[in-house]
Amino acid sequence: MNAFRLLADLTHLLSIIILLVKIRTTKSCAGISLKTQDLYVLVFISRYLDLFTRPLSLYNTPFKLVFLATSITIVYYMRYHKVVKQTYNKDSDTFKHYFLILPCAVLAFFINPKFTFIEVLWSFSIYLEAVAILPQLVLLQSSSNIDNLTGNYVFMLGAYRALYLLNWIYRFFAEDVVRWIPWIAGLVQTALYADFFYYYIKSWRNNERLKLP
């Protein structure tokens, strides 16, 4: 464990809390992509199967349970909550996210640490997480005004994986740990946020409304 890793996981947790607060307090999920949330449920389920097969960890296990529970709750709210589901921008959330699942599955089938059920699904979840934000970013581009909580949510989500990159650099030098799959997927994932980060920081510094071109 190192500070980058701890900060990264806390940032990830914070992003989910921000989203839950937004949905619960404003009773609205406007500007949030249900497709991205669906993909996150898939990411967590396929990644945390080892909850049942590997020894529990005082640190990882609670996080895994919270990530699973919150991501499923968010999808439940957006799909079935009578008030919240009305505010879902169904017609703007148009990204064909099913087209992301198959390539990640095929890639995981061929590139994985070990050709076992758990490892292939784990690789699938790593690849899928890297692209899961795409529907959300596309939805933000079509949103006329992005509310602060949504902007903060996406920013924290991007920041968490960027912090993981620092964690991997630290672990490479301090613990000689090499992890090609999460490294490359994490780089791609963080790169996808690049322009969002640019406009988010620009709007924050000029104290103006966040707007993506």
Binding site: S57, N60, K64, I111, P113, K114, V177, V178, I181
Partner: peptide, 10 residues
């Protein structure tokens, strides 16, 4: 491909 199997990260 990878040195260690156990995924100790989230």
């Amino acid at each position: 491909m990878e040195k260690e199997r156990v995924h100790d990260e989230l």
